[in-house]
Simulated scan of single mutants.
Amino acid sequence: MTRKKILLATDLSCRCDRALDRAALLASTWHASLTVVHALEESPSVTDLPSWRQTLTPAQLALQQIRADMPKAPDVHVDMVVEQGDPASVLLGAIERLEPDLVVTGVARGETLGRMLLGTTVEQIVRKSRVPLLVVKSRPHDAYRNVMLTSDYSESSQRALPTALPLLPASAKISLFHAYDVLFEGHIDDRISARDAAHHRATDEGLAFVANLRANAGTGHAIPLICEYGDPGVLLSDLTHTRGLDLVVLGTAGRTGLLGALLGSVALRLLATLPSDVLIVRPTTG
């Protein structure tokens, strides 16, 4: 069996230590290799100091910090990549060369790769790479236990569960979330009946989707369906708090609604507001 590969993108801030710990935990669980990638955006300064007074280069300092921050996990093989350049370009180049099974990053808002989560770099990564992206926000104490999959019931979103399953222990609780609305609701007199009808349709379709999802993923997990009317961002934020979710799985392509919009403002808003870790999954085709 081919050994799995994990790529960790870090800006070396203390916030990204959480992503480092999660990546190391997953690498140990998977028996996977781990490559740590850091981008240097500024050109190193040139000095005329004698060699005995010259300090380490930015790249050497970055490598030194990565080695110092690495968890003591003797069963995890770690490689390091420190390159100068735009963070998105450095990361996309590393993804293309290494072909990892998963990219992991944190949510720091400082320099280099930390800015990606609230700017345009994350959109470039999601648009240009089909490798799943795990955004770590919480300090990892154990494997993921309470997981919410999001779906618009499209064929492409069927990939989310098989992608997420290797991240999860057998005891993990997995639920499926679907947000629906009512077309042309503003022009309907009996809005309550229209919402009830939409709820029944969404629930019936969701139950069939869950049955196909479990069969295609080959899992015995029971997957309760949560089908709600309203704004998906608000609903997911509420569910994350009330249900204690530690991982939300987002697809990035689909027919309509939540997943159809995830490459736009909804995705960035969820990444910025959800307190849980977020796994972003691209479809294999399309």
Results as ranks from 00 to 15, higher is better:
Q60G: 02
A23D: 09
S51I: 14
V76H: 05
W30K: 00
P50D: 14
T47R: 00
P74F: 03
S45L: 15
Q64W: 05
I66C: 03
S33F: 01
V46E: 12
A24Y: 07
D75W: 07
T29V: 09
E41C: 10
S28V: 04
L25C: 02
W30H: 05
P44C: 09
V36R: 03
P50E: 11
Q54H: 11
W30Y: 04
P50V: 12
Q54P: 00
H38P: 02
M70H: 05
V37Y: 01
S43E: 14
Q60S: 13
T35Q: 11
S43R: 12
I66F: 02
P50H: 11
I66T: 04
P71K: 08
S45A: 15
P74Y: 04
R67N: 13
V76W: 04
L63Q: 15
W52P: 00
L61G: 05
E42D: 12
R67I: 11
A73I: 00
S28T: 09
A73P: 00
W52Y: 13
A39V: 08
S28E: 15
A23G: 07
I66P: 02
T55D: 11
P74M: 04
P44Q: 09
A59S: 12
P50M: 10
R53A: 15
P50R: 09
V46Q: 08
H38V: 06
I66G: 02
T47A: 08
A32I: 08
T35E: 13
W52S: 09
V76R: 02
A68C: 06
W52R: 10
W52N: 10
T55V: 08
Q60W: 04
H31Y: 07
D75P: 00
Q60N: 06
L61E: 15
H31Q: 15
E41N: 10
L61S: 13
A32V: 07
Q54E: 15
L49Q: 07
W52K: 05
S28F: 05
A59F: 01
P58E: 06
S33G: 14
K72F: 12
L49R: 06
V46N: 01
M70S: 08
A32N: 06
Q64V: 00
A23Q: 08
K72C: 09
T57N: 02
S33R: 13
A39D: 11
P58C: 03
L49G: 01
A32H: 07
T57E: 03
V76C: 03
A23C: 09
L26I: 14
T35R: 10
V37N: 04
V36D: 03
P44G: 11
S33A: 13
A23F: 09
T57S: 15
W52H: 14
A27D: 04
P74V: 06
L61Q: 14
L61T: 13
L49S: 01
L63K: 14
L26Y: 06
V46G: 01
M70Y: 05
V46S: 10
S28W: 05
P71I: 04
P44V: 05
L40G: 07
A39C: 10
H31V: 07
A73T: 12
L26V: 12
V76E: 08
H31N: 15
M70W: 14
L56Q: 13
L56V: 06
V76N: 03
A24M: 14
L34E: 11
T35D: 11
P58F: 02
L25Y: 08
Q64S: 14
L63M: 15
L61R: 14
L40P: 02
P50G: 08
A62K: 03
D48T: 12
H38I: 08
T55L: 10
T57W: 05
A32W: 06
